[in-house]
């Protein structure tokens, strides 16, 4: 694991108790397990707490503008298809300002694995509401309780065309790692939502206790995909459905574009 870290830039900027390190650890163990060439991996991020991960990773790393990681990653992947491209971002970055790029990357089924660290808040800017802040929860910009309804990001990207979709939490570290490994192996657009605690800006304001209390909450409220199938919507209201939610095999964007190139050459030669 250490060989994947730029240790000279430690300590990292994340707060004590933050879930980002757990998600990053799961990602690195998944990469290690797959045995990928370290020189052929690019990690791309936007702006936010989780997006600072790129600075600490010893791959080719690209820390872009707010919300645009997937758009940068699309150009990178298309220009150099042999690269394994991974996007790491938060819920505000990927689902709000970057929401359009998220659904279109899924629509194209471009071979990029996206890890969304969902802490339900804008942590970097100290606690504003995100599109994944649940209704009624408090944030600095939702001082009377959030009136917006949150996305179900996994359903969103599945509907948009992602070919691999999964969700887990920072409590279920082993599962999270397994799901990320599956996502990395899927050829096409893969999406893993990692529900993660922000004890400082989300937990404290909403009286959810310490980081450990938040992890226990995930333990107690997580429901497997299989168990969820036999539950009623009202029973699922405060639950987190975890596991592989969707996996289909469909041609990825690069393969399809390779056919375009063949056809273009054939017609040009004629």
């Amino acid at each position: 694991m250490k060989r994947y870290l730029r240790q000279q830039y430690m300590p990292h900027i994340w707060c004590p108790g933050c879930g980002n390190g757990i998600v990053l650890g799961a990602l690195l163990r998944a990469i290690s397990r797959l045995g990928w060439d370290q020189d052929r991996i690019a990690v791309v991020s936007g702006i936010g707490c989780s997006s600072r991960a790129t600075g600490y990773l010893d791959f080719d790393t690209l820390h872009t503008t707010h919300g645009r990681a997937l758009a940068f990653a699309t150009g990178l992947k298309l220009a150099r298809p042999e690269l394994k491209v991974i996007v790491v971002g938060g819920d505000g970055d990927l689902a709000a300002i970057g929401g359009n790029h998220l659904i279109h990357a899924a629509r194209r089924n471009i071979d990029i694995t996206t890890i969304c660290v969902n802490n339900r808040i804008y942590g970097m800017t100290s606690g504003q509401a995100s599109p994944l802040t649940p209704k009624g929860r408090l944030a600095t910009t939702a001082p009377y309780g959030n009136v917006d309804r949150p996305f179900d990001l996994c359903q969103l990207v599945q509907a948009a065309g992602a070919t691999y979709v999964a969700r887990s939490t920072t409590y279920h570290v082993r599962q999270l790692c397994n799901l990320i490994a599956e996502a990395l192996e899927n050829r096409g657009f893969s999406f893993v939502e990692a529900v993660a605690q922000c004890p400082v800006y989300y937990g404290r304001r909403n009286r959810l206790g310490t980081a450990v209390d938040m992890l226990k909450y995930y333990r107690d409220h997580a429901v497997t995909v299989r168990a969820a199938q036999s539950m009623q919507p009202e029973q699922l209201a405060d639950k987190i459905i975890i596991g592989r939610l969707h996996h289909v095999v469909e041609p990825d964007y690069e393969s399809e574009y390779a056919r375009v190139m063949e056809e273009a050459r054939r017609r040009a030669d004629r």
Binding site: T64, A73, G75
Partner: peptide, 9 residues
Amino acid sequence: AATIGASLA
């Protein structure tokens, strides 16, 4: 963004 990403490649 994609233009910049490709250039980095």
